[in-house]
């Protein structure tokens, strides 16, 4: 049962929760241009509306699964919403957060597979050339290629997301491409 329906939360519109605040200390609102609370809400809603689809697509390429991607992006938004201050560039911040969430997801999956080899791949329902080849890359190579050729990000931005030097990005991309060249060649 969704916690919305218990513990003082109630769901409205099927999805939104209303929380009865019993006086808990809440962080100050996200500050966007000094706006009031309603502005904050509007900004966050707009951000959600504008970037939900793009972030889910990005996370799908990184994880191979739409449902997993949706969960990760939801997580990211929740974390962002609980920040005390707005990020300077919310869109970039969210993008980096999603990439990091996907990285954690891969780490967790590796761990799970080590303990339970028979675990089915969550992206097994995504047949197709692209998914097959992406799966052969290391998570880091995969991230680099997705950011480079799906989002068309310049090397220095990819380096910022991956927290590495641009030269490392170049090498990740080249090695990833080298692997793919065999797979993709007709």
């Amino acid at each position: 049962m969704a916690l919305c329906q218990r513990s003082g939360f109630a769901t409205i519109h099927g999805k939104l929760c209303v929380l009865m605040d019993m006086g808990q200390e809440a962080p100050v609102s996200l500050v966007h241009g000094g706006g009031g609370q309603n502005d904050t809400r509007a900004v966050l809603e707009e951000l959600f509306r504008d970037s939900w689809g793009d972030l889910v697509r990005l996370a799908t390429f990184l994880t191979g699964s739409v449902p997993v991607a949706e969960d990760l992006v939801q997580d990211t938004f929740l974390r962002y919403g609980s920040r005390r201050t707005a990020a300077d560039e919310p869109a970039k911040y969210l993008r980096t957060s999603v990439v990091n969430a996907c990285r954690s997801y891969h780490r967790r999956r590796l761990l799970e597979r080590r303990h339970r080899p028979g675990l089915p791949r969550p992206d097994a329902d995504n047949p197709g050339e692209l998914w097959d080849v992406l799966d052969r890359l290391s998570p880091r190579q995969r991230t680099a290629l997705v950011l480079r050729y799906y989002l068309d990000l310049p090397e220095n931005e990819i380096a910022a997301v991956l927290r590495c030097r641009p030269a490392t990005v170049r090498s990740l991309v080249q090695r990833g491409l080298a692997k793919l060249r065999e797979e993709l060649s007709p």
Binding site: L3, D71, L78
Partner: peptide
């Protein structure tokens, strides 16, 4: 006191729990 929360919709996730690890 009523506090309406930010409109980021949420949904619960069901995990399998086995041997101390969780999988979705």
């Amino acid at each position: 006191t009523f506090s309406t929360q930010v409109a980021v919709p949420t949904r619960p996730v069901l995990y399998r729990w086995s041997d101390g690890t969780a999988s979705r």
